[in-house]
Simulated assay, not measured.
Amino acid sequence: MGKSKRNSPKPGGNRAERLAERRAALEQAAQTNTRPFEGLAAECDLVALREFVPSATAELPLVPGVAAERPVVLATVLPGAVSALVRAGEPPTGYVGVQVQHQGADPGADLAAGILWTQSAEPGDSLSSVESVAGGPRLADVIDPAAALDLTVHQDFDWWVPEGVDPDPQVAATIEQAKQAIMPSARLALGAETVGAAWWVDAGDKAHIRWVRPEDEDALMLALARLHANGGLHLGEGSRFAGSFRTHGLLVPVFDLDPEQHPDELVAPAIEFDARLAEALASDEPTTAAERRSRDGLRSRQVTLR
């Protein structure tokens, strides 16, 4: 007969270890900044770039005193998903990525730390990961909080290699592989009167609009429910509201679209939707039974990205 397993360690460690792990997880969750880009004019675009935009760049509007005559470019993802790197040139250029291998508790503060690192690092250096310290600079301390991002959306990753430089075969193969997997994307140019950031993507069998919104989630959900109950929750003929997800403290409504439509064709319907939504947000009318049912149905289709 085999020996008794009464005193053998149980899978997952003993009770004290499991409690310690649970406490550590709760402490980490408590330290996480659930809305890391709040207060920035670029908040909605920063969320989009971090969560679902494949390839885009923008030179950051640094506040006076931060840059040592060295510009910094924000990128969706850098080679190897590193946090930052410095590219040689006159002057050298810093790059910081928002889609990284290792995520800290406050992505905004981590970005600030990466930006500051680029100002003193040597050309050719890269930073695999960065984690901000408590009480350190916030992103709003490093970039102009009132400035929007002047984005360039790419349909490939050729910008990973400086112009005029021949990449080594391994890098070239990586870029080609990424190019084959990328989904065409575009930011809808809706004008200054619209709110949030609406991003189009061609997913093959269908296209989508993912519209990052800055409003309070409960108020936005009620406004969406009012539109749904009245038949106004759409982006024109052939579109369908698919649901919503929340990430970094914001709600992102998603619409399914006809993949044959060009993004420019969606601009007018999107502006009209934004106007309907603004009217619904401003309404103080009591909710109807149909609107309450719509809100319950819309909430049941929500997911949260962490």
Rank of each mutant, 00 (worst) to 15 (best):
E59D: 08
D258A: 04
G2W: 11
G231Y: 11
E38Y: 07
P9K: 12
L305N: 14
D284G: 03
G238C: 08
A81W: 05
P9C: 12
E17I: 12
A121F: 06
A140S: 13
E17Q: 15
A75Q: 09
Q99M: 06
L277R: 02
G2K: 11
P145R: 07
G13P: 15
V63L: 14
G12F: 13
A121C: 03
L116P: 02
A290R: 08
P107Q: 08
R70P: 08
G2S: 15
I209A: 01
V73W: 07
A113P: 04
V77Q: 11
A121N: 04
V63K: 11
A181S: 11
V153R: 14
P107N: 12
R292S: 13
S8K: 13
E285M: 04
A178Y: 05
D202Q: 01
Q28F: 08
A112G: 10
E215C: 01
G12I: 13
R22E: 11
R306E: 15
H262A: 00
V96C: 09
P167Q: 10
L266N: 00
V212W: 11
Q28T: 14
T57K: 01
D144N: 12
L78C: 15
A280V: 00
S128D: 07
S4F: 13
D284A: 03
R292N: 10
H248G: 11
A198P: 10
G236I: 00
T76W: 01
V96W: 04
T288Q: 03
G231H: 15
L49T: 06
R213W: 09
A219I: 02
S244R: 11
A192Y: 04
V201G: 03
D264K: 00
E272L: 06
C44H: 11
D106V: 02
G104N: 09
R22H: 10
R22D: 12
T76I: 01
G97Y: 01
Q101H: 02
D45P: 03
L227E: 05
A203W: 10
R226A: 09
R293M: 06
A207M: 10
V171A: 14
R22K: 13
C44D: 13
G80A: 02
A25C: 06
E279Q: 08
L46E: 06
R240K: 10
L46T: 08
V133H: 15
T174L: 13
R295I: 02
L151G: 11
T93S: 00
F245R: 09
L62Y: 01
L281V: 03
V77Y: 02
H234Y: 02
I271M: 10
E51W: 07
L40S: 05
S132P: 09
R187I: 14
A121K: 02
